[in-house]
C-alpha cells in the first residue's frame, strides 16, 4: 500500500474511552503477529523432523489445504482463549462487578 493511499480520516470510535480503541488495535496486531510466528515455528519443526535440516524456501511456501486443515482445531482454540474474556463472564464463581475501596 502506498503512503498516498492512506486516509487521514479519524477512525471510528466504539469504546467510551478512545484509548481502548487504539490499544485494541495494538493488541490485535500483536495477536496476529503471534499467530504468524506460531505458524512459522510449527512449519519449521515439521521441516526439521522430516528432512533433518533447515530449508527457508520450503518454510516460505504457501501451506497446502491439508496442512491448513491440520492446524484448524488449534487455531480455533487459540481464538477462543483470546476472545472469550471479551464476553465478561467468570470462569470460576465469585464476586462480580467493579472493586473499589473508596
Amino acid at each position: 500500500m502506498t503512503q498516498e493511499s492512506k486516509s487521514p480520516r479519524a477512525e471510528q470510535q466504539f469504546f467510551d474511552d478512545p484509548a481502548i480503541d487504539r490499544i485494541m488495535g495494538a493488541f490485535m496486531a500483536l495477536a496476529t503477529e503471534h499467530y504468524v510466528l506460531l505458524d512459522r515455528v510449527r512449519a519449521m519443526e515439521r521441516e526439521l523432523v522430516s528432512v533433518g535440516t533447515l530449508d527457508r524456501g520450503a518454510l516460505a511456501r504457501e501451506p497446502s489445504e491439508s496442512e491448513r486443515a491440520e492446524t484448524a482445531i488449534d487455531r480455533t482454540a487459540f481464538v477462543e482463549a483470546l476472545m472469550r474474556p471479551l464476553l465478561g463472564e467468570q470462569d470460576a464463581a465469585g464476586a462480580t462487578g467493579k472493586f473499589s475501596l473508596k
Binding site: 495477536a31 499467530y35 504468524v36 518454510l59 480455533t76
Partner: peptide, 22 residues
C-alpha cells in the same frame, strides 16, 4: 505466502468466533 495465509486464517477464525459465539 506462508505468513500471509497464516495471518488471514487467524483473522478468519477470529471472524468466525465473532459471528457465532460472540
Amino acid at each position: 505466502d506462508r505468513s500471509f495465509v497464516a495471518a488471514q486464517d487467524f483473522l478468519l477464525s477470529a471472524k468466525t468466533y465473532w459471528s457465532t459465539t460472540m
